[in-house]
Write a protein that binds this DNA or RNA. Sequence first.
DNA 1: GAGCACTGC
Length: 726
Amino acid sequence: MPSMATGDRRNFNPNSNGTNKHPQFGPKLLNGDQKSDSFARRQKIEQQRRSLPIASVEKRLVEEVRKNDILIIVGETGSGKTTQLPQYLFNGGFCRDGGTIGITQPRRVAAVTVAKRVAEECGVELGQKVGYSIRFEDMTSASTRIKYMTDGLLLREALLDPYLSRYSVIVVDEAHERTVQTDVLLGLLKDVQKKRSQKTLSESNNNGTLVKEENNGEGEGSSVSVVKPQLVRKLNPLKLIIMSASLDARGFSEYFGGAKAVHVQGRQFPVDILYTTQPETDCLDAALVTIFQIHLEEGPGDILVFLSGQEEIESIEGLVRENLKKLPEANQKVLILPLFSSLPSEKQMKVFAAAPVGFRKVILATNIAETSVTIPGIKYVIDPGLVKVRSYSPDSGIESLIVVKTSKAQALQRSGRAGREGAGKCFRLYPESRFEGLDDSTIPEIKRCNLSNVILQLSALGVDDILGFDFMEKPDRMAVIRSLELLYLLGALTDEKKLSDPIGHQMARLPLEPNDSKALILASQFDCLEEMLIVVAMLSVESIFYAPRDKLEESRTVIKSFSSPEGDHITLLNVYRASLEFLEKNKMENSKEKAEKNLRKWCKDNFINSRSLKHARDIYIQIRENVERMGLKISSCGDDMVPLRRCLAAAYFLNAALKQPDGTYRVLANGQIAEIHPTSVLRRAKSECIIFYNLVQTTRNYVRNVTRIDYLWLAELAPQCYALKD
DNA sequence: GAGCACTGC
């Protein structure tokens, strides 16, 4: 490593436009927690509202929504579209007749913070006129007229109310992010809007007489055949607004039949974009040198570095520390802060605190800093131009994480992070010519994920012809067929590709992956639903264990105390039960808050991520309520784990693998070869036959979350797949 | 004996 002080520096060219104004994407995170409700404060809010770029076009926007049933709004960050538009529409009379304005967000935190802010701006209590609804948290009431929610939640609502009849307007925000949920929602809303306008039309044609839903045979498979007559009368046309920060709205406009698009100015400080003159061969080294170049040559301001993963972050953290020691003491005032999702939250929080006077923060972050969180004080962004993405192969069922180049939109989003509070600089660690060669936007998620859950949800909404569904971007045909096969083998779909009764309907109601839902349904027959609820909740969260690098040995010993020779599923069950036992004991002696606090300490001592554990508990409570409502029998298998393992075999039979002479495993369903993941308790056990939760490809093929089963169970419990040879 | 971007119901 060259010494930083000797001037080994990267050469950057400012881009041709100099101070270039780039649009910025992502939810605007607002602080809605202020308590003061004084007159002065209200005046200040009013003043802020009026100064937003969008305020000058309020009348025009309301007018456009009135004239157009579908409107695309392209708004840059800082335009105020997310907080203001719903208020304009409310004041414009779009909630008369008791209709609600629904605004969807891809992320929970955005739905909550924006709702809080808007409630404050309106001077109302949160949950009254303005509210939000996200999984595990419903802050709405009968009087809620402006409702922020996650897009996944609106999809769930559509299962219960296919016409989304309570909404007069639905605003899909951050549509450019193109999450699976957003894409499915867009297709669904298009259909709902069409049906609702037909409904109103036929009603007026019939002059108020009751109308029955008819399938007009237009070839779309989505029909909901029985509608209560009273409902038909009440339905108003649905106004649809798609909000996006993408550079052009053409894609959305075309998808919605040439819908009108309007542009709203953003408010963003200028960000200087600098490129390297030469391509970099070693990205980590280039990032390292650039960090020091900024630190030693640029003015005050924090640095945000985008890296691909935890490993990269941890290694560069070490290198920065090492090199920092070589600098004169006056130059050593740097705070290095890692940030990635599996980092315990108390460590994550450190990036939001201001650095001590005279110190510069260097934040080493994954994509989490791109949209999910906004860090104050960032003036410099270093963007190596790479990102880790999930990819999925429908044929092998293998998920992998691969490092790819960012898209142009992503690069813009990253650079925008430097211009939140003042003019900033973004150092792209590649030549300008390479930027031109980048894809415009990231490939929509729906093109690169397992579709079985999407198909199950759409089936429950009455869409039987998945390949014919009007997606903005059609998913891969083979991926659809594979997922249909899986659902059929699980018994969720009939031979006619319709949702089976009751299994398919029950599975669609559960907020889980199809395999996990099936495991719960079967568990009530195997008398181990009590245990399976816990196992499935624990499998649904990522990274229960967190082992910091410096305490690796210690953590292994502690984690071992939970482990079961039967496998990882039962190990997870042990962890959950141990935490519950600790909490119950604590609750008897302490207040609830104190008990929760002690639990967090217990988690830390046992190298368990308390945020993940809390999440698992929330999921447990939710799915327990779900299965209770379905009338499934909840009983326990006690200390006998055989029923639980048999049930796992019956539900995850496609994920069964046999040991081979060389110690690797062969997946019975497709012949894939894989090893047991080193973190599994069965890594050394070398059981003959196993079932696993998932198969991931990193340096090798690994199966994770593994349980030992008896080979003979497969033919007995999954005869549709396995037969015994003589 | 290896290493896991990020969401969401």
